[in-house]
């Protein structure tokens, strides 16, 4: 029930941002639409529902910080790519390879975040995930060396429960 309410309010916030017309008629339509979408697909937005609201809020806050860091990594990624493409002679640095990266992250959402972050950061794209193994295509040796555990530690820190020390496997 709590998750339904959270879904509803998130959708209503999106509606209010999109709408821009704040009279009773349109906001009423918005509430109706949000109720409809909550009814038809509320199970899609959040998968795991064991966590409380307060823990979720903390996760969302840390996720925002992580996204800011990721944005900076994205800039670095593109600078690296720009150097490879436009600098004369830099084509020799293009040494594509496929590497294996083993993760300790457990839940699907953490793996999803890690895979997409790898795809966004310098010169690496996730090709496949088989269990805990990520198969990653890197464009150069520099890019492949960038895959140390730093990103994984940051993601694990997002979903670590505040009280206990052990990383939570059930976060989503």
């Amino acid at each position: 029930m709590m998750y339904r309410a959270v879904t509803f309010s998130l959708l209503l916030a999106i509606w209010l941002v999109f709408s821009g017309i704040y009279d009773a008629f349109h906001i009423g339509l918005g509430i109706l639409s949000c109720l409809f979408v909550t009814w038809i697909s509320s199970d899609l937005l959040f998968d795991d529902r064991s966590l409380g609201f307060r823990a979720r809020l903390g996760q969302a806050w840390r996720l925002g910080g992580y996204l800011a860091w990721l944005g900076w990594q994205l800039v670095l990624s593109n600078l690296h790519l720009l150097k490879l493409t436009l600098k004369p002679g830099a084509m020799a640095e293009v040494e594509p390879r496929i590497t294996l990266y083993r993760t300790a992250l457990k839940s699907d959402f953490e793996k999803f975040l890690l895979a997409n972050s790898i795809t966004l950061t310098p010169g690496t794209i996730t090709i496949k995930i088989l269990g805990d193994d990520f198969y990653i295509h890197s464009i150069s040796k520099f890019a492949a060396d960038g895959l140390d555990g730093q990103m994984e530690r940051r993601i694990a820190a997002i979903f670590a429960p505040a009280g206990s020390g052990s990383p939570s496997p059930s976060a989503d």
Binding site: N78, L81, L82, L84, T85, L86, P96, I125, H137, I139
Partner: peptide
Amino acid sequence: GAAVGLVRFPDFYTRMHAAGKG
């Protein structure tokens, strides 16, 4: 940079780097 990389990179996978990230 993405457009030039799309032309200059050697194979499909490296070209996806240019296309996807640029």
